[in-house]
Write a protein that binds this DNA or RNA. Structure first.
Lengths: 210, 210
DNA sequence: ACCTACATGTTAGTGACTAACATTTGGGGG
DNA sequence: CCCCCAAATGTTAGTCACTAACATGTAGGT
């Protein structure tokens, strides 16, 4: 009863979740992450503090953007193994960013504004920035796992982890730049350029339209 | 009165600082970071909780390894500007790691064991890992600043940041591998291999003895 | 119309961290 | 040698993120 057929309870739950997160990001943007208490967020959203924690495990999770970890890992794993690893990961990241941005084009960019607000908070707040960087570490783990390399030689896995982490670090800077630029430059382009600046032409396939 | 001529008060202060940190890392290693309270650390070190906070701003700082940020930034800035950026950063990281490891060889590796303990805690504890990753973000900022590129075109600075972050991410994996391997493989070698796996031969000068 | 399970509220507690004030003690000046 | 200042530490009271336990109300199927 949860496949494309949300019951009333599920709709209500999702509604309060959205209300909490929206209030939180607005308050954080107005007064700064550290100067807003969870109790204030709860009050603004018309719920109790406990309900906030039932929807978001920590205060930081109110802002963290959930990345399509599994999707990206599968993209990498399904790419031709003959390509250099940085290109396989780079292409997956560009594709994921393209999909993410295209989704926003249909709507009147309401979701994109929210995403940009979250990213700006993440850049400005040390605690959030740290959490986000660690989530990329988790993505690296997922990609290595999807590649099935960690069962093989521990040393190969190490080199793969290094290359993947480097790619993700470059993408993180692209995300940062995207937010600082207020989303004016297309995110896939920024990622492509960040990867090229780091890895040269091995990273991405040169496309004519760029 | 603090240049190579520590007064009694300064020696005592340094002594309590060391005692606190030593007790903390031992307790963390024994029972896990989350299962040790600051009050327990203070008691084990024979001081009050407040004194712990006077020496270490947060509980996390008890474990975080202070990296020679300024030194590395200067190393990068003083390297030939004609080299690709990843090589400039990579060489600086390898040199810094060499210096760090050589220092340990003279002593009976007591400092190295402590460093390895800290790194292991950092790898195992999400909060510490996140903080450490963010400290690399700070190092990236310092390097860009030392290069003086952030006054120039904002777009060049973005590409530089991406490349530097990628290098640091590769080094982070080398650090992780070093700790997992219990320091058996020389750290500079691990960094060199991580950089080569990510960036190819542009990253480091090929040395005959490697 | 009942019954169960889920979403939420309430309360009491832990632990990291801060601010303010009190106390000791090292170190320089008389 | 004593005295005074300042640095280091202790003490206390408080804020806030987060958890556990129990209570309540309501949706959704029987």
């Amino acid at each position: 009863m949860n496949e494309r057929n949300p019951t009333l309870r599920e709709r209500q739950r999702e509604e309060t979740r959205r209300a909490i997160q929206t209030c939180a990001v607005r308050l954080f943007t107005d007064r700064g992450y550290d100067r807003v208490t969870v109790a204030e967020i709860a009050e603004a959203a018309g719920v109790s503090s406990m309900t906030v924690y039932r929807h978001f495990p920590t205060k930081e999770d109110l802002v963290l953007v959930e990345q399509p970890v599994r999707h990206i890992a599968e993209l990498v794993a399904s790419s031709p193994a003959s390509f250099p690893l940085v290109r396989r990961v780079g292409s997956a990241l560009v594709d994921a960013a393209t999909a993410l941005t295209r989704r926003e084009v249909d709507e009147p960019a309401a979701g994109e504004r929210f995403l940009l607000d979250c990213l700006r908070l993440m850049i400005a707040t040390p605690a959030l920035r740290a959490r986000h960087l660690d989530s990329q570490y988790a993505m690296q783990q997922a990609i290595v796992e999807a590649l099935g390399e960690d069962a093989a030689d521990q040393d190969d896995a190490f080199l793969a982890r290094a290359a993947i982490s480097a790619c993700l670090a470059a993408m993180h800077m692209a995300l940062t730049r995207w937010a600082e630029d207020d989303g004016r430059t297309p995110l896939p382009d920024l990622i492509t350029r960040a990867l090229t600046a780091s890895f040269g032409d091995t990273a991405v396939v040169r496309r004519p339209g760029s």
